[in-house]
Design a protein around this nucleic acid. Structure first.
Length: 399
DNA sequence: TCTGGGGTCCTAGGACCC
DNA sequence: TCTGGGGTCCTAGGACCC
């Protein structure tokens, strides 16, 4: 293993949904294709050539590109393709970090002797995805995650770009700053205002100047990334921290009942997904968006984790009720709920708050636990101080 | 460029605790 | 008693990503 060599791969399927449609329907190949309903969720390179991008209203896309073919989304088919591609990733190296359905980082630094150089591995990976799943995939190879990510983007479509350590300056520094991963419109505007347009411009600045412009985290990040410093390793088995759903409800005036009905549907969807994923959550966040595109969030953290629809709905309704007076006449156009602080169901441990004056509550909570999971499932009590510090531990006997 | 749905991480103030 | 230093959790909003 030589961390000074380019041995991190970033693999990214090209125009994922649109490529699946072109794969399954030969008549779509070579033609501009968009996936979605009223909105372009993904589009083929032929469509991108006319200036179509995501998310764009389909009407507008059709104006730009009269030959555009709109295909309804088939999410189940995309998930199947994603699984097949990830199976090839995992067959390539155990060190796979999924970023989304269509992209992942792979660390191949330890495979040189058994599988060849990172470049050889990348060539084979692209060929396998093409042969076995029928999809084009672009791969960037570099010494850090960030450089690999930017390299794969630069290699598209259907490309492979290897950035060796000695080429890093030549590759990254001429690029506009917004190509840095994590630099979006706001940060770009701030940097441009101060005469910083390329990554090279940012790289010449001291960390203190960047922190003064962008704040601690963003400044530190731009400084590090523009200097090719990115110590993040591939993280295997990352799990999401929240599950949510939202729904745009249009511009027509809404009554409180309209909003409540939407809320019920969304909470039901979220709670179902939580149970299917065997996760419980503790913090419910209500999200509302208004006609003027402004948005607010309201959150409540419950004492215990749950995936119970009615419990989450109660919390969501209380959040909504307490917010309604503030948002009268603002024209609500979107309702969303997400549940965070997720843990496994059944949880490997539960935290039961109690005070030394109220040990009865602890007894009751323990009885509840045994009833829910069976007395054998409750194996050990760990006493924690209020600050999380360890205080003691006792094995729990079945009775 | 007038815009969907699903996420992540950071910041900053307040409540609360010892 | 009105006073320090260290810390956690919660909430709300901002920015970003695919």
């Amino acid at each position: 293993v030589d961390p000074s060599r380019a041995s991190i791969l970033h693999a990214d399927l090209d125009s994922f949904y649109a490529s699946v449609e072109q794969r399954d329907d030969p008549s779509l190949r070579g033609r501009p294709v968009s996936v979605g309903g009223g909105l372009v969720l993904a589009c083929s390179y032929e469509a991108k050539a006319c200036g179509v991008y995501t998310p764009m209203a389909f009407r507008k896309a059709k104006q730009l590109c009269p030959d555009l073919v709109d295909v309804p989304a088939r999410f189940d088919v995309y998930m199947e393709a994603s699984k097949a591609v990830f199976a090839i990733f995992h067959d390539t190296t155990p060190l796979v970090e999924g970023i989304s359905v269509d992209e992942a980082f792979l660390d191949v630094s330890g495979l040189r002797r058994i599988a060849g150089t990172p470049t050889e591995i990348a060539v084979r990976l692209r060929q396998r995805v093409r042969d076995e799943v029928g999809l084009p995939i672009s791969v960037g190879v570099a010494r850090t995650k960030h450089l690999a990510k930017v390299a794969s983007a630069a290699s598209k479509p259907d490309g492979l770009l290897v950035v060796e350590p000695e080429d890093e300056d030549r590759f990254l520094l001429p690029l506009p700053v917004h190509k840095l991963w994590g630099v979006g419109p706001k940060t770009t505007a701030k940097l441009n205002q101060r005469g910083i347009f390329t990554v090279g411009d940012a790289a010449r600045l001291g960390e203190d100047s960047l922190v003064a412009m962008l704040g601690l985290a963003a400044g530190h990040k731009v400084h590090a990334l523009s200097g090719h410093r990115d110590p993040r390793r591939i993280e295997v088995g990352r799990r999401r921290g929240s599950i949510g759903s939202q729904s745009a409800i249009g511009w027509r005036p809404k009554t409180d009942d309209d909003i409540d009905r939407t809320l019920v549907a969304i909470v039901d969807r979220v709670a179902r997904r939580m149970r299917k994923a065997k996760r419980l959550g503790r913090t419910v966040t209500l999200r509302l968006r208004f006609e003027d595109w402004d948005r607010i969030t309201r959150a409540h953290t419950m004492a215990a984790h749950t995936s119970h629809t009615e419990t989450i709905l109660d919390v969501a309704r209380n959040l909504l009720r307490s917010t309604l007076p503030d948002i009268a006449d603002r024209g609500c156009t979107l309702v969303g709920i997400s549940v965070g602080h997720l843990c496994d169901d059944p949880p490997s441990q539960l935290v039961l708050p109690f005070t030394r004056h109220d040990t009865e509550a602890l007894d009751d909570a323990l009885d509840d636990l045994k009833e829910r999971f069976g007395s054998k499932a409750v194996t050990r009590a760990v006493l924690l101080r209020h600050d999380g510090g360890f205080s003691g531990s006792v094995p729990m006997l079945p009775d």
